[in-house]
């Protein structure tokens, strides 16, 4: 609880300091809206040309797209310490400072940065979700709402876990991180669309290795009343836990890696 309070206080402070440059903030937020808007437009244009994709209607596709973009950019907004700032923390030696304080390293890394510009991307995602939910005529129930939140929460953990791999590489001063990026950003691109449209190897990759399908698609499909992987209803509530498991695994490896940390010497 104490840690959560510390995190919230840090966020408040960071926000205040970022708002010292409002013009730059507004400009960059607009850029983000255009960026994510462009991605959403691609989905709309695809729907315009193809109407459906397997069993999924255009509204369904918008819902899947919105799920991914809200989850991904929420993580990048609030987890920026891990998703963006980490390499520079190592290079600048700032990580040393974190080790000098009586708190967990990951806690402090998360407390270190916030990226409020992502609000633009999240906004686009929310619009896509609303449109998708309307066009799919989703009947919302308390259970579905709960599942929706669960999916986003565990999805964030999964994405945070993926970025932790990059951090681990970084601690061991490995430079070519493109391979990890392929999994993280490739996962984002691929899993904007439901998993069942992909061939087997990709399905396995995004179900068993980086379980976007379990965390985002299974719940989304349940909300849209079109279950995938022929799973029973309660499974939709269980599958997202895979995101937490993935995060915990990576967190363990991260802690292990920290014992090998060699600070950049002066």
């Amino acid at each position: 609880m104490d840690t959560v309070k510390l995190y919230l206080k840090s966020m408040k402070m960071l926000l205040r300091s970022q708002m010292q440059y409002p013009a730059s903030f507004i400009m960059q937020t607009i850029a983000q809206i255009v960026m994510e808007g462009g991605e959403m437009m691609a989905v709309l244009l695809i729907i315009d040309r193809f109407d459906t994709l397997h069993q999924w209607t255009g509204g369904n596709l918008l819902f899947f797209f919105g799920m991914m973009s809200v989850t991904f950019y929420l993580t990048e907004c609030f987890g920026r310490g891990v998703t963006g700032a980490f390499p520079s923390l190592v290079r600048s030696g700032h990580l040393d400072t974190f080790l000098l304080r009586p708190r967990g390293v990951l806690t402090q890394v998360l407390c270190h940065a916030i990226d409020p510009r992502r609000i633009g991307c999240i906004g686009v995602g929310v619009i896509s979700l609303i449109l998708g939910s309307r066009q799919s005529a989703v009947i919302w129930t308390a259970g579905k709402a709960l599942l929706f939140l669960e999916s986003i929460l565990f999805g964030s953990m999964l994405i945070l876990g993926l970025f932790l791999i990059e951090a681990i590489f970084c601690i061991h001063s490995v430079k070519s991180i493109e391979v990890v990026n392929a999994l993280t950003y490739g996962g984002r691109s691929a899993c904007q669309y439901p998993i069942d449209i992909y061939p087997r190897p990709l399905r396995i990759l995004f179900t068993a290795v980086a379980p976007f399908a379990l965390v985002l698609h299974v719940p989304s499909a349940f909300i849209l009343d079109k279950p995938i992987y022929s799973l029973p209803g309660f499974a939709a509530f269980l599958c997202p836990a895979a995101g937490a498991a993935f995060f915990l695994l990576m967190y363990g490896l991260f802690r292990k890696a920290m014992t090998y940390y060699r600070s950049t010497g002066s």
């Binding site: 206080k9 402070m13 300091s17 040393d96 708190r103």
Partner: peptide, 21 residues
């Protein structure tokens, strides 16, 4: 190397350190 926060008044940095410790 600084352990305080760059863009905020040092008073705020101290308060955050109070919470951290």
């Amino acid at each position: 190397r600084s352990q305080l926060w760059w863009d905020v008044p040092i008073m705020d940095s101290f308060q955050l350190l109070r919470d951290i410790y």
